[in-house]
Amino acid sequence: MSDSLPIAFVVPLQGPTGIYGPSCLACGELAAEQLNAVDGILGKHVELVVVDGGREPEVVAAEVGALVDSGRVKAVAGWHISAVRQAITRRIGGKVVYAYAAMHEGRDDTPGVFMLGERPINQLLPAAHWMREQLGVGRWAVVGNDYVFPRVTGATARLALADGPSTVVSETYVPLGTTNFSRVLTDLELCRTSNEVDGVIMLLMGQDAVHFNRQFARQGLSDRLARLSPAVEENTLLGGGAGAHENLYAAAAYFDGLDTAESSELARAYYARYGRWAPALNAVGESCYEAILFLARLGKTTGSMAVADVGAMASGTFYDGPRGLVRLDGNLLDQDVYLASANGLAFEIQEQIARAT
């Protein structure tokens, strides 16, 4: 290959979302190795320049901006919270292609930004409908971190469910990094006792979700209130311990053990590369793998990595990956989404709740 294509790979290595970091790094590295074993991206060797996305958003954005301005990187990819994404787009929007891997609250029309994760319309909302139909859970208390993704997603759920048989009864948002949920749990206990709620929509990230689930179980709420989350994954289950997840459900486009040909292919390659004690293979890590391969697909389709040229990747384009068949819808992805129940430290798929159309 003639030279390299350096990519700013923004993933959390500290803070509440640092729990996802090892999975992100392993999956990103695997994607780069697989591409480099063939012809990289645009004939160039893929180089991941790791940026710690677990710091304050403006700090992360400043580092990414300096890398872009100096020409050190030619694209940006990775999993990080929406507050970090917004800071990055304010700093470098329109300068380079940005493959944002995480589930998100909705469209971001910044030139060059592609939003590859799940969003409420194909993740949280169909999951809530399933839980109403199958479990009779329909009166929800939202508990989330206090930043853009949880707040917008909570508001979306409140508005979308208002005219149906389900409803959002309350919304509570706590700072990212909260470790003590005693007041929140007391309020939930009172609401359950008065028969006001029968489920909790958890919009808590990483270690915050671990603390919440442990305390939720210790307070004896697990058998009385169902929990539903678009963010809980295998690392969260490991952190919480086997006894913290009774009546807990998660919605995502990928789970370790998802029984499809595409997901099985990734799992075989992942565990062959990293072995039995690999970081958890989960939706967060897989989304990073997806983002790096998306950049390769973008380059192959458009023959370029320039923001001005990526419009050649037409809306409506279908392609397949570990999540199965996905479809580009503007700068968003439509994808299959599944609902799973936690069983100790693993997930059991219950049903496919959304399809790429």
Rank of each mutant, 00 (worst) to 15 (best):
S4I: 10
L5T: 02
A8T: 07
V10I: 09
Q14R: 13
Y20G: 01
S23D: 08
C24W: 02
L30T: 06
N36C: 11
N36P: 07
V38Y: 09
L42G: 12
H45W: 06
V49S: 02
D52N: 14
E58D: 15
V60N: 05
V60C: 11
V64W: 05
G65I: 03
A66R: 14
L67M: 11
L67T: 06
R72T: 13
A77C: 05
I81Y: 05
V84E: 05
R85P: 02
R85Q: 14
T89N: 14
Y98H: 15
M103E: 02
G106C: 06
G106K: 08
T110V: 15
F114K: 04
E118H: 06
I121E: 15
Q123C: 13
Q123N: 12
Q123T: 15
L125I: 14
W130L: 10
E133D: 15
V137S: 03
V137A: 13
R139C: 03
W140D: 06
V142L: 04
F149W: 15
V152K: 10
G154D: 02
A155T: 12
A160V: 00
A162Q: 14
T167V: 12
V169Y: 04
V174C: 09
V174T: 12
P175V: 07
T179H: 07
F181R: 00
F181L: 06
R183T: 15
V184Q: 13
C191S: 14
T193G: 15
D198T: 07
G199S: 12
L204S: 03
D208Q: 10
V210R: 04
N213D: 11
Q215S: 10
F216G: 00
A217Y: 11
A217L: 13
L221H: 12
D223W: 04
L225F: 05
P230E: 10
V232H: 00
L237N: 09
G243C: 04
H245T: 12
E246H: 09
A251G: 06
A253L: 00
Y254N: 06
F255D: 04
D259L: 02
L266M: 09
A278N: 07
G285A: 10
E286P: 00
A291P: 00
I292D: 05
L293D: 11
F294E: 10
A296P: 03
M305P: 01
M305S: 09
V307F: 08
G311Q: 07
A312P: 00
A314I: 08
A314Y: 08
T317R: 14
T317W: 08
G321H: 14
L325Q: 14
R327Y: 07
G330R: 13
G330A: 09
D336W: 01
Y338Q: 05
N343D: 12
I349F: 02
Q350V: 12
Q352R: 15
A354G: 04
A354T: 02
T357M: 01
